[in-house]
């Protein structure tokens, strides 16, 4: 059986990763309500909202926050359909799926709402079950929406720098920023690696061979990364790095 779907899948995944990033950049560049706010304010506001969602014990409050976030997305000129798709797929849908058994009496005993007879067995949907599943999914989707909205309306490097307001040590912020840059480089390496595999093996790779190829590609990526390290360090030295990271921007703000 031809088994090259791991090749296709990897290529598609890296491509969708780049596509998402381009979309995110495009949204962050629009002139909308949240795009005009500064990254630090947005980070703090998002954290406050997330904490609110975390502590909320009222389904109306959770729904109100969710609608508020959707409103902010519209005000920030984000296509609502795109936003809903982006936030519901995959985590909330998955959560909805795993919350399904909790609807019924064997996990959530209580006042029955609906009885589904399936053959000899009667599945009893209960009120506490509905509430538990509702809380769970509402909390998950609202939290994901807040995070995605922040990431969509803020340039990523500004968002990472904004972490300094939370007293994240400068060293961590520097590593975060550098890591972010290398992700794109490495994702491109992954894409090229799989394209190269595809062009060499065509439509058929045995599973065993496939696993070897992938593991070797990972190992060779690490070899390249290690070599890259020396170059990056020399580049840092040449720009004046002396053991402590220094940043030029934002001093005037």
């Amino acid at each position: 059986m031809p088994n090259n779907n791991f090749i296709e899948r990897s290529i598609l995944e890296t491509l969708s990763f780049f596509r998402e990033s381009v979309f995110a950049d495009e949204y962050a560049a629009r002139d909308g309500f949240l795009q005009r706010r500064n990254a630090r304010q947005k980070t703090i506001a998002s954290l406050l909202l997330l904490t609110g969602v975390l502590f909320a014990r009222n389904l109306y409050l959770l729904s109100a926050i969710y609608i508020f976030v959707l409103g902010l997305a519209v005000l920030s000129r984000i296509n609502l359909w795109f936003f809903l798709k982006r936030t519901w797929i995959f985590i909330p849908l998955f959560s909805l799926f795993i919350a399904l058994p909790a609807l019924f009496s064997f996990f959530s005993p209580g006042e029955p709402v609906l009885i589904l007879p399936i053959g000899q067995i009667k599945l009893v949907m209960t009120k506490p079950g509905l509430m538990a599943a509702g809380f769970f999914v509402a909390r998950v989707v609202t939290s994901v929406s807040i995070t995605v909205l922040l990431a969509l309306t803020t340039r990523h490097n500004e968002l990472l720098k904004g972490l300094r307001v939370l007293r994240v040590p400068q060293m961590f912020v520097m590593i975060l920023g550098m890591c972010y840059r290398y992700i794109y480089l490495f994702a491109e390496v992954v894409e090229n690696t799989y394209l190269a595999i595809k062009s060499r093996v065509g439509g058929h790779v045995r599973q065993r061979a496939g696993r070897k190829i992938v593991a070797w590609s990972i190992a060779s990526l690490w070899q390249r990364s290690y070599a890259l390290n020396t170059q990056v360090y020399n580049a840092m030295l040449s720009r004046g790095y002396r053991g402590e990271p220094k940043v030029l921007e934002e001093e005037s703000k």
């Binding site: 990763f17 490495f186 390290n229």
Partner: peptide
């Protein structure tokens, strides 16, 4: 820089489908 490169490496390992 190895820490940053190591982070990026652990990020993309998940993109390698086996």
């Amino acid at each position: 820089p190895l820490l940053a490169i190591g982070s990026a490496f652990s990020f993309v390992i998940m993109m390698f489908n086996v």
